[in-house]
């Protein structure tokens, strides 16, 4: 009994250390964005000038708008197309269904370096070229499998008898989908949409290969800035991004249980 309690205490301490490892660098980065010294010198002196100077940086602001626009359009397209595909995979039996489901995994499993360079070659070859449209094409393709997996998981909890009942009461296919099925899978659709937004908004590798100097996204702009040298402005914009994306995932967690337990 005694040893069990000691071991459990050590386990809790271990989890605490892991959380410190995961969060300390981020906290330090955030603190440094409020520090006066441009060379990250201590002692710490409070300032918000680095955030203020972000507003003067037109390049960064236009990249931010690009990122937001692409993330929002990616979310809308991938949620609509992904939910439709999930419904089809749930409702109908046909030959090749297993293959279609298996095809969702290469986009998730293949390193983005390979997908990104392949997109660059292909888009260039067929005349789409680089730029925001190419980035959008790529982001939707990366987000779609996540949406389909998440919505399909929610559909597993749906009772098909409900659709049959609605149909026997005279509803047509469209009414059944809109009034019965969609309300039930809504939490899955919202979670899928939030995943899609996160995949697009945080995407660096694929955007990096598909962007041009004028048409770029925020992570690509940050990477370029990091490679020129570290400045507190990078800390400031990074802090904003990490706060936004963590808030987004906390929101997602309200709709989707990551642990799979109910």
């Amino acid at each position: 009994m005694m040893t069990t309690r000691i071991l459990e205490g050590l386990g809790r301490l271990y989890i605490f250390l892991l959380l410190a490892f995961l969060y300390l660098p981020i906290i330090i980065m955030a603190l440094m964005s409020f520090n006066v010294s441009p060379f990250y010198q201590l002692p710490f002196e409070w300032t918000t000038e680095w955030y203020a100077s972000l507003w003067q940086n037109d390049q960064l602001i236009s990249a931010t708008w690009n990122s937001l626009e692409i993330a929002i359009i990616t979310t809308i397209i991938s949620v609509v197309l992904g939910s439709a595909a999930s419904l089809a995979l749930y409702r109908y039996e046909f030959r090749g269904k297993k293959v279609l489901q298996a095809l969702l995994f290469p986009p998730i499993a293949i390193p983005w370096l390979i997908t990104g360079t392949a997109m660059l070659i292909f888009f260039f070859g067929v005349g789409i070229g680089r730029g925001l449209f190419a980035i959008l094409l790529g982001h939707v393709a990366l987000a779609l499998p996540y949406v389909i997996v998440v919505v399909s998981a929610r559909l597993q909890t749906f009772a098909p008898e409900l659709e049959e009942a609605a149909r026997s009461l005279g509803a047509n296919q469209w009414q059944v989908t809109m009034r019965v099925t969609l309300p039930w899978i809504m939490p899955g659709v919202i979670a899928g949409g939030l995943f899609a937004f996160a995949v697009s908004f945080d995407q660096f590798v694929v955007s990096y290969f598909l962007s041009t100097p004028g048409q770029t996204t925020l992570p690509v702009e940050i990477y370029a800035a990091i490679r020129k040298g570290f400045t507190p402005e990078i800390n400031a914009v990074s802090t904003i991004i990490i706060v936004v994306s963590m808030a987004l995932m906390l929101l997602t967690a309200r709709f989707f249980k990551f642990g799979g337990e109910k």
Binding site: P25, I28, D202, F204, Y223, I241, I242
Partner: peptide, 26 residues
């Protein structure tokens, strides 16, 4: 358990580039 599990996997859905940059500070 739920709260700590969420805390552990939260960073993994946040921006990878920014998290790498944060180690440069350390």
């Amino acid at each position: 358990r739920e709260a700590i599990f969420l805390l552990v996997i939260l960073p993994f859905w946040s921006n990878g580039l920014v998290r790498i940059f944060s180690w440069a500070m350390v």
